[in-house]
């Protein structure tokens, strides 16, 4: 069971309190009614499935209830960082596999 730091509760909490909520930093288009089929497909259907660093949404479902974002390495399962919803996507240097997360 992973430990995940909730940026709102300001501490690490057991994974059982959380729910994964898909890829992060995909904003709903403001003019969604008017976008093209291709734009809608990109927004709604297409997702990255990276081997390595992934930007994901999580919700502290059984904690403070907040949605937040996380950077997790999909091979090592290590969380590099978590941050509040609405904060900008962080720029990361790809760490080597096996290297400890900060």
């Amino acid at each position: 069971m992973l430990l995940i730091r909730c940026p709102y509760c300001e501490e690490e909490r057991p994974e059982l309190e959380f729910r994964h909520a898909g890829e992060a930093h995909i904003a709903r288009p403001e003019n969604i009614a008017d976008i093209s089929d291709e734009e809608f497909a990109q927004y709604f259907f297409y997702r990255d499935n990276p081997k390595g660093m992934a930007f994901e949404r999580w919700r502290h479902m059984h904690g403070c209830g907040r949605f937040f974002n996380a950077v997790r390495h999909t091979v090592t399962d290590k969380f590099v960082m978590t941050y509040k919803a609405g904060e900008p996507k962080p720029v990361l240097e790809e760490p080597q596999e096996g290297q400890s997360a900060p």
């Binding site: 479902m61 209830g65 919803a85």
Partner: peptide, 13 residues
């Protein structure tokens, strides 16, 4: 409720 919270917190905050 989860679906509504999702939109409220992340799309319509």
């Amino acid at each position: 409720l989860h679906h509504m919270e999702d939109y409220l917190q992340t799309e319509f905050p």
